[in-house]
Amino acid sequence: MTSRTSTRTLLWALLASIVVLYAFPFGYLVLTSLKPPTDAIAVPPTVLPKAWSLENYGTALATPGVIPSFINSTSTAVISTVLSVLLAVPAAYGITRYGTASGRIFVMLALVTRMVPPVAVGVPLVNLMSRAGITDTPTALALAHTTISLPLSIWLMASFFEAVPSSLEEAAQVDGCSRLQAMVRVVVPVVGGGIAVTAIFAFLASWNEFLFALLLTAVRAQTTPIVIANFQTQYGLQWGPMTALATLYSVPVVLFTLLLQRRIVAGMTLGAVKG
């Protein structure tokens, strides 16, 4: 009995140390953002601020383009999420419900899409967007981001649909629903939670994306990850304001996901997906 308790204690201690190691980096980022700019890069560094200061936040928010970039990040992510869900839901339904050869081929192709290095399609995409006359708009960036999130979304939605017994829409069809109606009115509402999970992942994929944003935006559609990287200019790097902006950009999603953690865990474990 005692040996069992001590094993328990050991396990907890192990876990606690992992947690500290895990929480530390982000905690240090937040603490650094609250130091005066010069202290932020002091040699040698300190963990806790010697003085607390919001100066870095002031500088970061006063930097032109920062606030619009938040709006751009949000609108890009929203457009991309909506598009992704709208395309993924019927596609995943078609794949899982009818088990056709075309469906299997499509799943394979969608998987292949996921293997495409963004850097390989980035530049052709830029040309495509500029031919369509939509470069430097949240829409163009959202379209690009959807190429990343759509395969994920299809994969996720397919797992959710698979969990729904097909007797459900059979019953609906007996009641006189068409196949489309059975899908839209009966099955889709049942996987509402799954759609929410899919949407969260699509949103995060877009919110955090860097390469396409770098290639596809200039001034009007610039998202925050680019602005964060912009603090590194040719002649210097403003660590202080950069940590402040990085904190501001991360805190909402971190809080948001902690609130919705159960759904996210469900999504990840179901589809084995990384957002």
Partner: peptide, 25 residues
């Protein structure tokens, strides 16, 4: 499930809206 369900009509409406957004931009 209720709130997150989309009817086909909503769906069409949304595609329409986002299509318009694409054109407008």
């Amino acid at each position: 499930s209720h709130n997150s369900g989309l009817s086909r009509r909503d769906l069409l409406k949304w595609t329409g809206v986002s299509g318009l957004a694409v054109m407008a931009t």
